[in-house]
């Protein structure tokens, strides 16, 4: 009789694999939008407190990314776009990713609560919960509205930034939330139009897989029609100045033009790819203009002064 002792093979994962697990590109967008929320909030915040808040939000976003990759490892392995991620590639074991994500989530939320304020910590905890449990575990595999509802998780960081400064919420951060919320469907559906086969193979009910290209293009236009005026709303309602207003009008018009091209496109996915790429630039420009418009460089320093 032979006795076999099962043991875990020591991990080969390096630091880079763990950074990849945190979805650094998504994290950078989260950090940027949270920074804008932090910067445009009324009142002053000490730079050290502001930095601590941003760090906690960044780590929290990374934790959510790691937990998403842990749960979605089977889907990721089936899709060409995500097959190279650390878990499908065998660099990090699912259990390691789960432990890493949970540890970071706990650290980021508790630290934000202790170092900054409780409301910001509650919002961060809710964001992580919403992204991991509501979106990843539930909606993603069950409904074509997955990214519409799940988009709320990605839209919350400016609200967390605002709450970190003020300890409360107002209409302005809610507007920023709505802009990202309505930006998410055209952005992801433009991508899913030319990745539909990938999603179908992985069994993810994205809109083009379930309802087809034509319906998806129609919904992209619909959400862009809501998004463009929402983008202008901070200026129209007096929360932002003319620089932001001009940028929002111009980029919103470009988004609409691209969405119309996507709607009319019958062969190929050129317009979808253009819309996907431009949508990233659109959100970045909108938030960057808000930052520039709301405060001069000197004002920015004053905002962060003690």
């Amino acid at each position: 009789m032979s006795l076999t002792v099962a043991h875990a093979e020591p991990s080969l994962a390096g630091v880079g694999d763990y950074i990849e697990l945190m979805k650094p590109r998504v994290m950078s967008l989260v950090v940027f939008t949270a920074l804008v929320g932090l910067a445009v909030a009324p009142g002053h915040v000490n730079p050290v407190i502001g930095f601590a808040a941003l760090l906690c939000i960044t780590v929290g976003a990374g934790a959510a990314g790691a937990l998403n990759m842990w749960y979605d490892a089977d889907i990721d392995a089936a899709m060409a776009r995500t097959a190279g991620r650390p878990i499908p590639r065998g660099r990090i074991k699912p259990g390691e990713a789960a432990g890493f994500g949970l540890t970071l989530a706990a650290f980021s939320v508790v630290s934000l609560g202790l170092l900054v304020n409780v409301l910001a910590a509650v919002l961060l905890a809710f964001t992580i919960f919403f992204y991991v449990v509501i979106y990843t575990m539930w909606l993603k595999r069950s409904t074509p509205q997955n990214i519409v509802i799940g988009g709320a998780a990605g839209a919350l960081p400016p609200m967390i930034g605002w709450a970190a400064v003020t300890g409360s919420l107002a209409i302005e951060p809610i507007l920023l939330f709505l802009i990202i919320f309505f930006w998410t469907p055209p952005h992801f559906w433009a991508l899913s139009l030319y990745r539909a086969e990938d999603y179908a193979r992985a069994g993810v009910p994205m809109l083009p897989v379930v309802a087809g290209d034509r319906e998806t293009r129609r919904w992209i236009l619909f959400y862009t029609l809501v998004l463009a005026p929402l983008g202008v709303a901070p200026w129209a309602l007096g929360y932002a100045g003319p620089i932001y207003g001009a940028a929002a009008l111009a980029t919103g018009a470009a988004m609409l033009a691209l969405a119309l091209r996507v709607r009319r496109e019958r062969v190929g996915h050129t317009a979808s790819k253009q819309l996907f790429a431009f949508s990233i630039l659109y959100l970045f420009l909108l938030f960057a203009m808000l930052l520039i418009d709301r405060m001069s460089l000197g004002g920015l320093f004053a905002h962060f002064a003690a």
Binding site: P10, S11, L12, A13, G14, V15, Y18, V48, I49, F51, A52, L55, F107, S111, L115
Partner: peptide, 25 residues
């Protein structure tokens, strides 16, 4: 790989201590 992970954890913990110290101040 293990050594690089250990160094990263040490640096992260060191940074965490510094942040706590700075915020306390």
């Amino acid at each position: 790989a293990r050594r690089s992970r250990s160094i990263a954890i040490a640096l992260a913990l060191g940074a965490f201590v510094l942040v706590i110290f700075a915020v306390t101040m």
